[in-house]
Structure formats: C-alpha cells, structure tokens
Computed example of a mutant assay.
Amino acid sequence: MTELLFRDDAYLGTATATVVAATPEGIVLDRTIFYATGGGQPGDTGTIRWAGGEAAIADTRKGEAPDEIRHILAEGAALPAPGTAVELALDWERRHRHMRMHTALHLLCIAVIGDVTGGQIGADRSRLDFNLPDGPPDAAAVTAELNRLVAAALPIGTSWITDEEMAARPDLVRTMSVKPPTGSGRVRLVRIGDPEAPIDLQPCGGTHVRNTAEIGALAIAKIENKGKQNRRIVITFAGEA
C-alpha cells in the first residue's frame, strides 16, 4: 500500500518517499502526494528526483492492489532502484486548478437539482452530465448560484464513515456513473459549509480547496443535450471561456 498524503493535506506540493518497486509500468512509493486518475479527476504530473537522477512523472495511475499508486515516468527515463530515497514535486499550478475545478463541480451539484450521470475534470474546463427530463437549466441562473456560493466563502472539510455506514446512506451518492471509493473499510466524505449543517456532503476521494472563495469566479461555457434527458453542463473559470 502507498500512504496517500494528499488525502490528509491536498496542499503538499513536495515530499520525500522511498521507492518500493520500479518497472516500466510505473514506480511504486511508500508514500505519495500524487493523485492517481479516478473519479473524473486526472492523475497528477511533476518530477521525481534522487541522488544522481531525475525524471518527469507524466501520469499517475492506480495499481492493482488497494491504495497502490503507480507513478508513470516519461518515455525513456531512468528508473530509480528499490530502496532509493526520492524527492517528489508536483506540477502545482495544474494540480491546484484541478482542486478548484473539482470543488466547483460539487457546487454545480448544489446549483442544479438532478442525478449526475457522468463528469470530467480538467485544468481549464470541467463538466457534469445531469439527468434532467424537463430540459436544460437556465445558464444565467446556474452561473449566478455558482458565484454566490463561491463568494459565500464556505469552508470545505472531510470526514470518514465505514463501508457499512456508506451502504446505509445511498442518499449521499450524487454521481450515478461513479461508485463511492469503498473496499478499504472506510469512505471519505467531502463536506461544504457548516460542519453541523453542510449544504453538500458526498463521498469523494479527490483533492479540493479549503474554501469556496479559493475557486474564483466561474462561468458556464455551454450546456448541451446529450440524449433525451441528459444535459451536459461545461464550466470554466470566468475570463477563460
């Protein structure tokens, strides 16, 4: 297992670790700050350095074992030997944009009432697909609500429940196409707003900002029909549409 440092502190941009295994399929470390592709959020990129060597991490993916993370090096890069002490450095600007966007999609779940059927996070644009049989929502109204929630500077935190507690609370699941990250015995919940009365609480293993104000102003890039009842809402940062 890899200790997932980003679960407790998504703001760690650097860290030290030890190589557990190194193959062309990826480097496995005893601990990491790199988020692996999952839940619609892309894997992190960055750099790994060790005595006498350095390589770019081109992608981060989940391994076969639970909580095993594989750091995919750029093609042709040298591999550090198992047992090597390494230094990790994220492409922080890219990661932070993913954090802002991921949290913004949670706000979109608040602003639009409907089951989420899919989604994807990007550094520039992100989307959620909603099951909305009555038609697409009003773009101006959704934009206004998103930015109201951003301006409200709501705190964001996490908590944990057991797999059994998660199974007893299906109402917490908003995304129909993505199963909650169960299997390790506990599930991480992301909370927006007052801890005693959050405005949003759902299972999520991704990285998020600490306060909605950190997201910045948002804009609706487009709303598309993707089927009889499926509506795709694409958001971006205001001024970047």
Rank of each mutant, 00 (worst) to 15 (best):
M1E: 05
F6M: 02
F6N: 01
R7H: 10
D9I: 00
L12I: 02
L12F: 01
G13Y: 01
T14G: 00
A17D: 01
T18F: 02
V20W: 00
A21C: 00
G26F: 02
V28A: 11
V28M: 03
T32V: 09
A36T: 05
T37F: 07
P42R: 00
T45E: 11
G46W: 04
R49I: 11
G52Y: 07
G53D: 03
G53R: 02
R61C: 04
G63V: 06
A65G: 13
I69W: 10
R70H: 10
H71K: 11
I72G: 04
A74V: 11
L79Q: 00
P80C: 13
A81N: 09
G83D: 08
T84D: 01
A85E: 11
V86P: 14
L90D: 00
D91L: 10
R94Y: 12
R94P: 12
H96G: 00
M101P: 04
H102L: 08
H102A: 13
T103W: 04
C109K: 09
I110W: 15
A111S: 15
G122I: 05
R125L: 08
D129Y: 10
N131V: 06
N131Y: 08
N131A: 11
L132T: 07
L132C: 09
P133S: 03
D134L: 10
D134E: 14
P136W: 03
V142Q: 11
V142F: 13
A144E: 10
N147I: 14
R148N: 13
V150L: 04
V150Q: 00
A151K: 07
A151F: 03
A153S: 15
P155C: 13
P155D: 14
G157N: 10
G157D: 12
G157E: 08
T158W: 06
S159A: 10
W160K: 15
T162M: 08
E165R: 12
A168N: 09
D171H: 13
R174K: 15
T175C: 13
M176W: 09
S177E: 13
P181N: 08
P181K: 11
T182K: 15
S184Y: 04
S184D: 04
V187G: 06
D194M: 07
A197S: 07
A197G: 05
Q202G: 14
Q202H: 12
Q202K: 13
C204W: 01
C204G: 03
G205A: 15
G206I: 12
V209L: 14
V209S: 07
E214R: 02
A217D: 09
L218W: 13
L218S: 14
I220D: 02
K222N: 12
E224N: 15
E224Q: 14
N225H: 11
N225D: 11
K228H: 15
K228M: 15
Q229W: 08
N230G: 06
R231C: 15
V234R: 02
V234W: 01
